[in-house]
Design a protein around this nucleic acid. Structure first.
Lengths: 350, 350
DNA sequence: CCGGAACGTGAGAGCGCTCTCACAACTACG
DNA sequence: CGTAGTTGTGAGAGCGCTCTCACGTTCCGG
């Protein structure tokens, strides 16, 4: 039985060995591997056979040492664990990024710095030439990473509009318009005393969605009442607490727009505990169209963001930046979609 | 203003430059960078100053070319998108893995092959010496990856016990014991006609949890009735459908153990739609202790798996395998915990 | 006071690959 | 038939790092 699969020794064939077996030079093998057109058909076939026979796989370290390219892209998520756990946003975004990278034969490297020390390690990693570009998923605007990377000339695309008009590529969903449409939908349903539970005021998404709520009221010539605006934090508990406050301040409210589904679910529980019927007494609209929106009773009307598409778009933007030397920052804002469910059903005729 | 930060040119200082600036040899700088003890204190200080001044970061490609180490670990998730979206399991696992890797200064590389083509690319990537080891998160047992990697002598740890007693490192939660305890909890609560909604029979977790259910009934000398066992698929819709079937087959059942929270939520909806009160008429226990368990009404009793710890344990196992030449496969099985909520409240005295 | 151990440092090879350049073998054209 | 171009292939340098080995100092015991 000479049929040995190079079993226990590391089967690391090199370019050199392939060249020897195929009876050509290293350069020619390299050309075959990299799909250069200037190789004659029969030499190419010979080399390919040798590659197959040896199970040759190019060593990326050696390659990227000379090309100064790693063909991988980092996705950096700087979010507290709690958000990551509860939010289906990230898996979906990653999936979008992942498929787009795969199509370009780029490798995804996920980094999730946990603390200060970790973040320094991350910067070191990114600047060590380990990746060709960085996708930054940080919903808090005060992150120093973009400028640090910019200083090192590493292409970056961030998710969500940065709060200070930094010159950086970004992709975002149209939060303001989404919130406007959600609120308009409530107005269309016959609601007039519409409250809102906002996101944190230090997050652009929170601020933008509040602005959209205001837009819709203004469009309909409805007054904006501070008593109808309660601050939340994108969490279930925060949503419930905010709802409680709204019910005290404005017991007569007939609808509420929540800047996240998690808060909407909290608000729903709070409303039901207070004996209000949804949607008969109070209509609710959430934001994110997360899976939880379909499991509540009644089902939760929500604003869907094109999350996967945002991921794909970020990759698109990044690879464009990679190829072109001119680094003109671009921004891509994607439209949202309102998914109507029972929680915002049109008010019955009185 | 001579104060230029090497702005637009790539500021890639090399070992050589550091050596020149510090007035020492390349080897000495390398020793300092790698923390070798055989460098005198003042030379070390001089070199460190030079490193700081030049903002030197070692080039990992060059390093791993010679060390044959990449100092990164791949996490390969081969799951359909749908699961990834709805299941908070993965983020938590990743988080556990991530912190454990960070503590060892290892880099996490996340791979999520989407289809056949993608999977081949993944194999190529893993065998290109890009990673030192692989953590395989595939809940389906028929994955060919472990053996492919084993053939290449790449250390692997898989999540969950493989169905065929493959010789491979794995980490798992004690599904059988968790299910046994969940069911025993229902028995303790005075329930006697206890149904179960299982996971898919091709997934070890599903099979093991069913076995645990049987164990508990056997322990309590309760009969095992096929009418009380309904097949599910770990999804919300599947849980609801299975519950409907159970209600037809055994309208008198007074409790149900669901092999996942998502199915439990579906079952809950189905029970409530059928006019059964939970927990008065029928008690429910789920599995996973996912966030959704706290948002249902009533709150869902569930079995918590130490997911983060499983991630950490996988890293632990992998790094052990990395360091030692002897590759004796190990298995680590972690205990679960029952989190009691209202959905399984003790039956009121009749 | 001398031989050898201990210690700190430098020289140089080489990891596996790409890429430029040179060159041989054709082809085409005046 | 000579010259210029075209095409396929090989030789060789070098990417930035680690690591072995050799060498110069210092220190100590006999």
């Amino acid at each position: 039985m000479a049929q040995v699969e190079a079993s226990s020794t590391r089967p690391v064939a090199t370019l050199d060995e392939v060249a020897r077996v195929a009876g050509v030079s290293r350069a020619t093998v390299s050309r075959v591997v990299n799909g250069s057109p200037k190789v004659s058909a029969d030499v190419r076939r010979t080399v390919e056979r040798a590659i197959d026979r040896l199970g040759y796989v190019p060593n990326r370290a050696a390659r990227s040492l000379v090309t100064r390219r790693s063909d991988s892209i980092a996705v950096v998520i700087t979010e507290p664990a709690s958000r990551l756990f509860n939010d289906p946003f990230f898996p979906r975004l990653i999936r979008g990024v992942s498929t787009a990278l795969a199509a370009r034969d780029l490798q995804l490297v996920l980094l999730m710095p946990d603390d200060e020390v970790d973040e320094r390690r991350t910067v070191r990693y990114l600047t060590a030439g380990h990746v060709d570009g960085v996708i930054l998923v940080s919903l808090h605007g005060d992150d120093p990473l973009p400028s640090q990377l910019a200083a090192r000339n590493i292409p970056v695309v961030v998710l969500a509009r940065p709060p200070h008009g930094v010159d950086v590529n970004y992709v975002d969903a149209d939060n303001r318009d989404g919130a406007r449409r959600a609120t308009a939908h409530l107005i269309d349903g016959g609601r007039r005393r519409i409250g809102t539970i906002t996101g944190p005021s230090d997050m652009v998404a929170g601020v933008d969605r509040l602005a959209g709520y205001r837009d819709a009221l203004a469009d309909a010539n409805l007054p904006i009442d501070a008593d109808l605006i309660a601050g939340g934090d994108f969490t279930h508990a925060g949503g419930a607490a905010a709802m409680d406050r709204l019910l005290v301040a404005r017991p007569d409210l007939d609808a509420v727009f929540c800047a996240s589904d998690l808060m909407a679910v909290g608000a729903l529980a709070s409303l039901q505990a207070a004996g209000r019927r949804v949607p008969e007494d109070v209509a609710i609209v959430g934001y994110d169209d997360s899976p939880i929106a379909t499991t509540t009773r009644p089902g939760l009307t929500s604003v869907r963001q094109p999350i996967e598409e945002m991921g794909r778009e970020m990759v698109h933007l990044l690879t464009e930046t990679l190829d072109q030397a001119d680094r003109i920052p671009r921004r891509v804002v994607l439209a949202t979609e309102l998914i109507a469910r029972a929680s915002s059903a049109r008010r019955a005729m009185p």
